[in-house]
Design a protein around this nucleic acid. Structure first.
Lengths: 220, 220
DNA sequence: TAGGATCCTACACGCCCGTTTAGTCCGGTG
DNA sequence: CACCGGACTAAACGGGCGTGTAGGATCCTA
């Protein structure tokens, strides 16, 4: 029936199905759900990937690889944190974004590594943006970038948990309303904050005696 | 052995143990783990609470009740979002905070309701703070408060996922380092944002034609 | 001390899951 | 033709889980 030369087709087909199912239902979705989506059996998936963890690893490698290259192509404008918005706009990336959120939500070494890598990348963008004058310098660039990255991913994961989309269309619309709802408050916060004076910041700086690294602004 | 008049002691003891275990391991922790922590059997817990879901409901009611009253007592200062920080400072609230994060992470109706309630409360604080002049007004107060609430909870849940604390001490230290790491970037962001000009915000406002509700600032 | 209510345990049932295994189908090759 | 190897399935295995139940231990009451 299936042609599957050297079953490379099957592998990638199962991988795509797994990314979709895991993104919608979470990483703990039954292997049989992935099998149904891909049109074969759970046993066959184990034969192909060794174990469920092997499948997860294959998904990780592929998704993070895709995102990494896509990021390299897109890396232009200002905020490293809003890069997520840009991804979600392209419909093709929606399943990958959902998978990332689920993966990060599930924790583990992979998630930590991915976030670390994302932070390192964003540090570059941020430095460029600071040098270009579109972004204000920070007293601790790495802490800021990590904070922005984590709240973006955490917010996304929270939204997926709350809405529990059942199929691809629900997932896409969920992401879209998520971005719509956060656009205004995020932009407001990003451009002017929400505290009217520097008292809290200054008292904190006085209390801890300025940041650990004591980095100076940008140096691209 | 155990005295347990009318087993009210046992009920609350099991509930406390469940809150601790669920907060550390997640809402899907085995009932038997809770039983071990509380010093009895899984079957007994079912007898006491009807089902695992009944236990979860009892935990929800208690935790959210405690937080609600504690919030009413603490509700003073500025940022509704940093209220979480204040909670985590008090060691007694650490398990409850972790439970909330896990609960929100697991999704479901309870989590949604809790967030909605938190948003409504924070709306009041925010309005007061705006009236007092410590917080800038927003073009959409409810959207801002919801955004701040969600990113705080999402960030916290993400941190718990990544660090996977095994016992109470690890959990406490995890929360503490979490707050330490986010304090500076959050305060920076809250007082001055990170974008150096209003171009992105203005172009967005032009694009969507100002906010939906068109609320005016505060009216306490 | 007898009896009964209550707290609690030990155990078994049924379900779902990942994984294993035996077997089937089928195209290619001598 | 027989044969072989790979793709795939169906069924079963074993473990972990929530849950129901029968029985034992303990304590209050008369």
């Amino acid at each position: 029936m299936r042609v599957g030369r050297a079953d490379l087709n099957t592998r990638s087909r199962v991988r795509e199905a797994a990314i979709a199912v895991f993104g919608q239902q979470g990483l703990d979705a039954p292997l049989r759900a992935v099998a149904a989506e891909a049109g074969l059996t759970a046993g066959r998936i184990v034969q192909l990937f060794g174990s469920k963890d092997g499948l997860r690893r294959a998904c990780d490698d592929h998704v993070f690889g895709v995102i990494r290259t896509a990021k390299r192509d897109t890396m232009v404008s200002s905020a490293g944190a809003t890069m997520i918005s840009r991804f979600a706009m392209l419909d093709e990336f929606v399943p990958y974004l959902a998978y990332v959120a689920r993966s990060v939500q599930a924790g583990g070494e992979h998630a930590r590594e991915f976030i670390d890598h994302m932070v390192e990348d964003a540090l570059d963008y941020m430095a460029d943006a600071v040098a270009a004058g579109t972004v204000l310098p920070s007293r601790d660039e790495r802490a800021r970038v990590r904070y922005l990255t984590e709240i973006s991913l955490g917010h996304l994961a929270l939204r997926l948990s709350l809405d529990a989309p059942q199929d691809a269309e629900e997932l896409a619309s969920c992401l879209r309303t998520h971005l719509d709802a956060m656009a205004l408050p995020a932009l407001e916060l990003y451009t002017q904050g929400f505290l009217s004076d520097r008292r809290m910041l200054d008292s904190y700086l006085l209390y801890v005696g300025d940041p650990p690294g004591q980095e100076q602004a940008a140096s691209a």
